[in-house]
Design a protein around this nucleic acid. Sequence first.
DNA 1: CCGAGATACTTGATTCAATCAAGCATCAGC
DNA 2: GCTGATGCTTGATTGAATCAAGTATCTCGG
Lengths: 126, 126
Amino acid sequence: MFDFVDAYDRAYEIAASRHGLSPAQACVLGRLSAPRAMSELAEELGCDASNVTQIVARLESRDLARRQVNPQDRRSRQIVRTDHGSSLYAQFEESFAFARAAASHLDAGEQEQLVTLLRKALGSLT
Amino acid sequence: MFDFVDAYDRAYEIAASRHGLSPAQACVLGRLSAPRAMSELAEELGCDASNVTQIVARLESRDLARRQVNPQDRRSRQIVRTDHGSSLYAQFEESFAFARAAASHLDAGEQEQLVTLLRKALGSLT
DNA sequence: CCGAGATACTTGATTCAATCAAGCATCAGC
DNA sequence: GCTGATGCTTGATTGAATCAAGTATCTCGG
């Protein structure tokens, strides 16, 4: 189990760095298929809001995301992926071959079985 | 799959921090059941030797590990867990309940199946 | 046995992630 | 309109990680 998780993490990190992203940046970018508030992202990542500020600032400085004031609540910002950000993320996903590669060792039935078992194992841990 | 890996990582980090360890420190400490050379550790963690130097330095400063010159090759250091380090690591493992908790949702047959599938999925990826 | 090159580690500089404590702007409710 | 809560940012600090140099030690060919 440790080896599996470790391999997953490494693959993620390598795929990200191939596109000049850190894992954290890739993770945030991936959550921007729709506009999100900073607080939502912080909640999802389980980290401080100021951390998200930093990460988004780095994405913004590379024109991968934009930060715009929410007109409904001017305290809040909506983080949006730029076109550039979207296409970069698509490339990242393409090159994050882990899930696909892992699946390629298993036939359809086994894949389904694995998903079922992982879900069940996860159970109420979340 | 992402959720599973994420849950594992979080659980690891939380268990580590409960004992005042960072994940990296816990990881290194866990590899010291026998004395290891810096270069071995760097190889295993897939990181720079200077990174290991830092991490071990922090462990050493808290009397969890010791660094002693290898008499066979005086360039090389052997990293050894102190008694304190061993007992702390045992506590950490105890509180890193993820594997056990995950397993508790599965019966013996399912556990075996999961391990088989993970191993197979991992295949030659390593 | 000596010197050249390789090996094992350390140091210093730098980047990023993460956390905490303060701070500012804005909002919501009395 | 205040008061207090909410949403985000800033600044300071810690740790992980990487890279480039540097030191000590070993090994091997001449």
